[in-house]
Computed example of a mutant assay.
Amino acid sequence: MKPYLFKNLFDLQGKTAVVTGGLGILGKRICQGLAEFGANVVVVDLHENDAIAFAEELADVHGVKCLGVQCDVSSTESVKEMVEKAVSTFGEINILHNNAASKSSDLDAFFAPFEEYTLDQWREIMAVNIDGMFLVAQSIGKQMVLQGKGGSIIQTASIYGIVAPDNRIYEGSYYLGKQINTPAVYSASKASVVGLTKYLSSYWASHGIRVNTLIPGGIQSGQNETFITKYSNRVPLGRMGRPEEIVGAVIYLASDASSYVTGQQFVIDGGLSVW
Score class of each variant (00 low, 15 high):
residue 88 S to F: 00
residue 270 G to K: 09
residue 32 Q to N: 13
residue 208 G to P: 04
residue 170 Y to A: 02
residue 81 E to A: 09
residue 223 Q to Y: 03
residue 130 I to M: 09
residue 129 N to C: 14
residue 247 V to T: 11
residue 107 L to R: 02
residue 77 E to Y: 00
residue 167 N to R: 12
residue 101 A to Q: 09
residue 170 Y to P: 06
residue 237 L to P: 00
residue 105 S to L: 10
residue 22 G to I: 14
residue 237 L to C: 00
residue 137 A to T: 14
residue 188 A to Y: 13
residue 213 T to L: 07
residue 270 G to A: 06
residue 268 I to A: 08
residue 246 I to K: 00
residue 221 S to A: 15
residue 193 V to T: 05
residue 137 A to G: 15
residue 168 R to F: 00
residue 231 Y to I: 08
residue 107 L to E: 09
residue 28 K to G: 12
residue 54 F to Q: 03
residue 205 A to G: 12
residue 123 R to P: 00
residue 160 Y to F: 14
residue 135 L to A: 09
residue 266 F to R: 00
residue 183 P to R: 10
residue 123 R to K: 15
residue 87 V to F: 05
residue 84 E to P: 01
residue 58 L to V: 14
residue 52 I to A: 03
residue 151 G to W: 07
residue 259 S to C: 07
residue 178 K to I: 02
residue 220 Q to M: 12
residue 49 N to C: 04
residue 162 I to D: 00
residue 134 F to A: 10
residue 243 P to N: 12
residue 77 E to D: 14
residue 57 E to F: 00
residue 65 K to G: 07
residue 78 S to T: 09
residue 189 S to P: 03
residue 72 D to S: 09
residue 217 G to M: 07
residue 145 V to H: 06
residue 196 L to M: 15
residue 162 I to Y: 06
residue 86 A to Y: 04
residue 225 E to A: 15
residue 39 A to R: 03
residue 100 A to H: 01
residue 39 A to P: 00
residue 121 Q to K: 13
residue 99 N to Y: 10
residue 270 G to E: 07
residue 241 G to S: 13
residue 236 P to I: 04
residue 71 C to R: 00
residue 145 V to D: 09
residue 233 N to I: 02
residue 97 H to Y: 11
residue 223 Q to C: 09
residue 258 S to C: 04
residue 85 K to I: 05
residue 98 N to W: 00
residue 41 V to R: 03
residue 171 E to H: 08
residue 105 S to I: 10
residue 49 N to A: 08
residue 142 K to Y: 07
residue 212 N to R: 11
residue 268 I to V: 14
residue 260 Y to R: 06
residue 247 V to W: 05
residue 27 G to L: 09
residue 74 S to C: 02
residue 109 A to E: 09
residue 5 L to K: 11
residue 102 S to H: 09
residue 99 N to M: 03
residue 14 G to I: 07
residue 251 I to D: 10
residue 254 A to H: 10
residue 92 E to F: 08
residue 112 A to S: 14
residue 41 V to E: 01
residue 65 K to N: 14
residue 218 G to S: 14
residue 226 T to P: 01
residue 183 P to Y: 09
residue 172 G to W: 13
residue 91 G to R: 04
residue 146 L to Q: 15
residue 75 S to F: 04
residue 224 N to V: 10
residue 150 G to W: 11
residue 37 F to P: 01
residue 210 R to K: 12
residue 14 G to W: 04
residue 130 I to L: 15
residue 203 Y to K: 15
residue 46 L to N: 01
residue 101 A to L: 05
residue 100 A to Q: 10
residue 187 S to A: 08
residue 43 V to K: 01
residue 110 F to I: 06
residue 54 F to A: 01
residue 15 K to T: 13
residue 216 P to W: 08
residue 262 T to W: 12
residue 232 S to R: 07
residue 178 K to R: 15
residue 257 A to N: 06
residue 204 W to Q: 02
residue 172 G to R: 13
residue 211 V to I: 14
residue 99 N to E: 07
residue 147 Q to F: 09
residue 186 Y to M: 13
residue 81 E to Q: 11
residue 267 V to A: 05
residue 64 V to Q: 04
residue 240 M to S: 11
residue 228 I to L: 08
residue 51 A to R: 01
residue 247 V to R: 07
residue 23 L to T: 08
residue 70 Q to L: 01
residue 48 E to A: 11
residue 274 V to F: 13
residue 18 V to T: 03
residue 131 D to Q: 09
residue 97 H to D: 02
residue 33 G to F: 00
residue 166 D to R: 05
residue 211 V to Q: 02
residue 202 S to W: 10
residue 100 A to P: 02
residue 265 Q to T: 14
